[in-house]
Amino acid sequence: MPVSSFPERGRRSGRLSAGRVPWLLVLPALLGLGFLVLPLAGLLVRAPWSALGARLLSAGVRDALLLSLGTATAATAVSLLLGVPLAWLLARTGFPGRRVVRALVTVPLVLPPVVGGVALLLVLGRNGVLGRYLYEWTGYSLPFTTAAVVVAQVFVAMPFLVISVEGALRGVDRRYEEAAATLGATRWTVFRRVTLPMVAPGVLAGAVLCWSRALGEFGATIMFAGNFPGRTQTMPLAVYLEMQRSPEAAIVLSLVLLAVSVLVLVLLRDRWTGTP
């Protein structure tokens, strides 16, 4: 009977889409997963677990760790101070050339950090476009100082914050800001008491992202700030250097960076991994 064939066909097609595994997709997927996970597993396997405590407390590692934490935090603070207003400008105003500005903001995201370092040197170096006057007038030279580390990190990491905060600002229901205005709030009050609290999760996520990017910064730092232990040698730089002298120290430093990354992931889990 022709009628009875319909439900049968429906059932078969249902099983097709739900049950059968397309190996052409699954095999490369598993390969990709292994490729991403295995190196990290290797790091854990080779870690000198017994000597970990002593290694972490050794002067070289401690200096690099403290310098990294300090500069990344400072860079995040600077990025917040400059980046949140920049994000507001991009999200809330319609000035001409806004699209160009947004494109410029995202350039450091895709630019090789080493190139960023070169660019910073050319502008802020002792003979740089601006650095020359800074040196002539104040005798201060920025490159190869701890401040230069922060500058390099801000350059590379701030776009992450700006993009994140701009997205959060666009997601806010602007009628709340209108409601605040009808209650007598000036634009600054609206921003401070309504907009900013409402985008706080986005700002926090951006700051964490920015901080972890600053923490991992290598290319721009080594180019613009050099590699002086205790002054500009941050953890990624120390990892690179130690790998040639004592790989065990490099592994310990790498483990610390890995732990920080995992921590960041945990902090942001609701934003990225929360959706099934």
């Binding site: 229901d173 009628r175 709340y176 009808t182 007598g184 409402m198």
Partner: peptide, 18 residues
């Protein structure tokens, strides 16, 4: 808006959630 002697109740009230 902030300098008008006006009070407004919005359609879905728009109470500040924070």
């Amino acid at each position: 808006a902030e300098r008008r002697p006006v009070g407004m109740v919005f359609q879905d009230y728009l109470l500040f959630p924070h």
